[in-house]
Nucleic acid binder design. Sequence first.
DNA 1: GCTATATACTGAAACGTTACAGATTGTCAC
DNA 2: GTGACAATCTGTAACGTTTCAGTATATAGC
Lengths: 349, 349
Amino acid sequence: MNRHQKEKADEASGQGRPTLKTLAFMTGLGVTTVSRALKDAPEIGAETRRRVQLVAKQIGYRPNRAGVRLRTGKTNVISLVLNTEHEIMSFVSDIIYGVSEVIADTPYHLIVTPYSRSQDPLDPIRYLVETGSADGVIISRTQPNDPRARYMLERGIPFATHGRTDMGLIHPYHDFDNYAFAAEAVRHLAGLGRRRLALLAPPVELTYHGHTLAGFADALSEVGASEIPFNTVSIDHSIEQIRMRTAQLMRRESRPDGFISSAAAATLAIVAGIEDAGLKLGRDVDVVSKQSSELLHLFRSELLVVNENFRLAGAELARSVLGWIGGAAPGTLQSLSEPGEVQAYRRPD
Amino acid sequence: MNRHQKEKADEASGQGRPTLKTLAFMTGLGVTTVSRALKDAPEIGAETRRRVQLVAKQIGYRPNRAGVRLRTGKTNVISLVLNTEHEIMSFVSDIIYGVSEVIADTPYHLIVTPYSRSQDPLDPIRYLVETGSADGVIISRTQPNDPRARYMLERGIPFATHGRTDMGLIHPYHDFDNYAFAAEAVRHLAGLGRRRLALLAPPVELTYHGHTLAGFADALSEVGASEIPFNTVSIDHSIEQIRMRTAQLMRRESRPDGFISSAAAATLAIVAGIEDAGLKLGRDVDVVSKQSSELLHLFRSELLVVNENFRLAGAELARSVLGWIGGAAPGTLQSLSEPGEVQAYRRPD
DNA sequence: GCTATATACTGAAACGTTACAGATTGTCAC
DNA sequence: GTGACAATCTGTAACGTTTCAGTATATAGC
């Protein structure tokens, strides 16, 4: 053993985190061989492969992310891009948990990339792409003509959108079927004898605003009910504004006898507005609302709810992005979640 | 210009992402000089420094994270470690937004590291430390004797805890003053003539369980009120269980005339339980609850609330970790957030 | 006994960065 | 004119990984 080799050995047996060099020294092989043995390359003997993998497991070898990333450009990172002002609360944590669930036994890390209202929504995307900070991206608040999706499609970076686009371009997405939700809600209200329905919709710029309106309109004509316009507010407005507008609406002669709400927080405001006007839920008016956690029935037992599972959405989105990174065709990574039945309150046993 | 230099130049002017080499070529300097000029090293001439920085800005140079990380070990990552089952929803997103706000104009990225109930809470921490995946860590669900804090303290990795420990060890934290919250709540209820108070506390293993109980007990004896034990459930229990236990309690002869609740979701269950027992909020019993968003008053206007700002907590936690990374003394990075007044509902104008 | 070919392994280079150890000037004291 | 010293800049090596271009040995064909 010459001086050069001696030094190498000394380094490799040092107590720092084990590297390929450590493994190479311990097995008596070259780093190249070790590197290949660990990824089951065919040109490595079966016996050697097993031996290397055994030693690696024994000493708890874990590839250095910076080394891999520098050499290959692979970051092993998925970025979830969030709007810090608009995103509804519970929504966010559920999505995060869903994503986490899926990437838990992969080498991927989840980084949260925020942007605020004041910024161009493209800013964080540009940052991610320009700096190569992620292998895949998940975005929400998807628009029919979404510049972010277009941008990422142009650059060839894998992504998935929460909600669909409408640009004639194919990309992975997960969406809740808001057309079906609105239509079912209308039918349910019609079944209760309600005939004059108001819709508190998502903000116009988002794709699912259109879906929701279409489901609402189609079912209205199907059941022969009519719409009471309520489009001066959306679920993005403040609780106070929604409450006030609802109260105003309910004091009119031509008030609705049914509401459909696209978000649980907004529903609280609607109910408050209804009661501000001196009317009673279940008697003067019925409300069907989406919710993502089972809380609305505690709020008012007269509420009618449809559940939207955001944890599932997060999981599906993560699966889609990983699939695209893994080489699957984007068109095969799209999913739509169907709403369950409209649920009335059932008293606990 | 010899062949060797020519090649270098060709590479450096290529259209890939600019690196130090690109800058070195453009300015006619060496990479070492450029590297130093960018970080304002004193041995670089003022004029050169300006020139390099100007060019860097012009062509949008951004240091390659993998390069820095490999060379220095600095990850520029803060990890937020979350329990995917227990963490209350809105809570999580607010903390994330708070952290994001603070690290927005730093080179730091936020990664979310989840762990589930089935796992040892130390697992994710060990992973982060062993793989050197983060420069700083934020943990929640802090316990009086917290193995995670102890572990990180031993390894010398900067972290901050949401909630305090009680091990005689010094580390950064941010906490809400739950002692003051419980005490104020008791005083407020006593002021309304309530004398028999029940507390729905945090789970026993968390540090703030103790704080809350202490504030509750101290104020009880101060105002001469008594406790109706309600310790078969905590805010970690399911909505259904809390509701059922509350209803049971309220049907007893010795029922409380006041409740204090440490979490908004649990408060919904308490109110439901109260009403299940045929009693009326504000008449038979008053409830003081913490909340992190202004929703409880919409739920029942009779509720009394104290606000806890989790976005602020996230921001403080991020500042603490960054401070520690930056070399500040851990003991100077501790903060306690005082609760505001107990708020009754005020009708909107 | 020779070449061709497959098998199993290896060293060197490169990704972008920073730290170390110089190298080249110019200035000043004497 | 010489030595000392500060000011400013530079090349090389290293972090851990993968890829490229081999090398060495054994097997087979003829």
